[in-house]
């Protein structure tokens, strides 16, 4: 297991990264309908992740994991703070960052359901900037890697949840990115498919020098695959480090619950 203090090369670094959403009160409060309300989804996150590391982002629902992940994938602009990914600035060099990262979520509707798995991959390969020749080579490779070669000609709508998730992984692999952001990738997967995904992360991605940032609220999953974890609550990073150092003699679940309870009292 990789330890954070032995980090060979930093591929992701954030400093005071924050995201606030502002909206008007609207008709729910007619007397103050034009007053602005600000909600802080991510507050001052400092984070460093090294190459080849599997970093777990833990936290209950609404903790800010998805917002942080979306910011790091350039889907959201940060309100404050800064971040670099593979040495590129998160705000100023979004194009370079997009070539270096992949987002794999549990969102099944991010594919064209009436097209086949292969047709979907061909389309996204073009968007990832692969030439026709490169896509011709790469698509069978990624299908083979995720075990979807035989089902590639079937329409996406015919796939099981596990197959859809494998296609999401295949799409993420197309551009050969450095960092894989996975947002609850095992949601809805059965134990076998979950185990296969964990094996894939360890045996294929990490062994190939790739970095994985895994947002999850499955603590067993974090224990199984993560080198380090960060625990988020109310948009803040409450703790960050290797599981054994954080939890000590307790289990990760015990540590997590006590930290969340502590955070609830603070809030």
């Amino acid at each position: 297991m990789l330890k954070y203090h032995h980090m060979a090369e930093v591929v992701l670094q954030t400093q005071g990264l924050s995201k606030e959403f502002t909206k008007r009160r609207g008709l729910s409060s007619p007397l103050h309908m034009f007053d602005k309300v600000t909600f802080t989804a991510v507050r001052g996150v400092d984070l460093t992740v090294g190459r080849g590391e599997v970093f777990g982002l833990l936290g209950p629902n609404g903790a800010g994991k998805t917002t942080l992940t979306k910011m790091l994938c350039t889907l959201l602009l940060p309100s404050r703070g800064s971040a670099t990914i593979c040495g590129y600035d998160l705000v100023r060099q979004q194009g370079k960052i997009k070539s270096s990262v992949a987002l794999i979520s549990s969102e099944e509707r991010s594919f064209y359901w009436r097209l086949s798995g292969r047709e979907n991959l061909k389309f996204f390969a073009a968007l990832y900037g692969l030439s026709a020749e490169r896509a011709y080579q790469r698509i069978p490779e990624v299908l083979e890697l995720v075990g979807m070669t035989d089902a590639a000609a079937r329409r996406f709508q015919e796939y099981s949840t596990g197959m859809k998730q494998r296609m999401a992984l295949a799409r993420g692999l197309l551009g050969d990115p450095e960092i894989f952001f996975m947002d609850e990738p095992t949601k809805g997967l059965d134990p076998v498919a979950t185990h296969q995904l964990h094996d894939f992360i360890r045996d294929r991605l990490v062994s190939d020098g790739k970095t994985v940032v895994l947002a999850t609220h499955h603590l067993a999953e974090a224990e199984e695959v993560c080198d380090r974890v960060g625990v988020m609550y109310g948009g803040e990073m409450k703790a960050c480090g290797p599981i054994r150092e954080l939890a000590g003699d307790a289990t990760l679940a015990e540590y997590f619950l006590s930290l969340v309870k502590e955070s609830q009292v603070d809030h």
Binding site: L75, Y112, Y128
Partner: peptide, 18 residues
């Protein structure tokens, strides 16, 4: 509505191009 916009936006293809 299909849910595919976000998947396209994380690729290195600009929104104007999309």
């Amino acid at each position: 509505m299909m849910g595919t916009l976000e998947a396209m936006l994380v690729t290195p293809t600009g929104l104007s191009n999309i």
